[in-house]
Design a protein around this nucleic acid. Sequence first.
DNA 1: ACACTTTTCCCCACTTCTCCCCACTATGTA
DNA 2: TACATAGTGGGGAGAAGTGGGGAAAAGTGT
Lengths: 138, 138
Amino acid sequence: MTGEYEHTLDAKGRLAIPSRLRDELGSVFYVTLSMDRCLSAYSSENWQRFSDKVDAMPFVKQRKMRPLFAFAARCEVDGQGRILLPQNLREYAGLEKNVTVVGCNNHAELWDSAKWVEQHAIEMTPENIAAVMEELEF
Amino acid sequence: MTGEYEHTLDAKGRLAIPSRLRDELGSVFYVTLSMDRCLSAYSSENWQRFSDKVDAMPFVKQRKMRPLFAFAARCEVDGQGRILLPQNLREYAGLEKNVTVVGCNNHAELWDSAKWVEQHAIEMTPENIAAVMEELEF
DNA sequence: ACACTTTTCCCCACTTCTCCCCACTATGTA
DNA sequence: TACATAGTGGGGAGAAGTGGGGAAAAGTGT
């Protein structure tokens, strides 16, 4: 998944999924918390893989993973390609009106547009790109 | 199982099961004690798996598991999707009126809403989320 | 054994919210 | 210009959650 897409959250808390990402996410996918006060969306297959991984962990470790499940939402896209984003997730990520959807290879991230602009400014410098490529050994 | 759902315990001690979790828990499931003064609900299949696991343990260890069985309740959901929660379990978890049901991958947890808010505040910080994701390597 | 209380369970009624559908606009394409 | 696709907004049917009445079942005491 690639690209950044600016969308708006309507009064009912619905968010349109960019058509470019719709195929890759599928008609049912999962949204949960992520770092930096953003949300991550995973396709059903990736979520299942993740869920199985946690299932195989010892009990005490499973408990630490709780927030990722407690705040996860199973989202079904409606006829217009939108999902209904639960309130608690919107609050966590500070989503009000303008939301930027960012393609991140195996998942998509949802950012408050203003926050994304800041993050974006940090990540998009030639210095940072150089550092990234270094790390990549590509 | 995912998501957090706020519900109310009525005067008769009945608790509505969130419709999103109903399919996964089934029409008959098991509720027992858990850590942090909360209750855990397991589907019949998962309860069986748990029970088998304990069965395979040495005798002395099995004895230590006793409270989990002694206080477990077999719950059947009624026509309106509710269960009747035994008094002793309600007391253990301090459930009075407002209950939060939390989806935790392979089980659901029942919390007094006020207690959950505290727990929630600890787990939901970006730092904790970052630590969890690190551990998971996902 | 009987009456009486308490608990459990089934049914109905009301309110709220989710989800489905239709309509409008903007943008891009032939 | 006509057409298709993507994104946005809103109305309304139906589901979900909540509360309460009353019959059946279980427990208690005389």
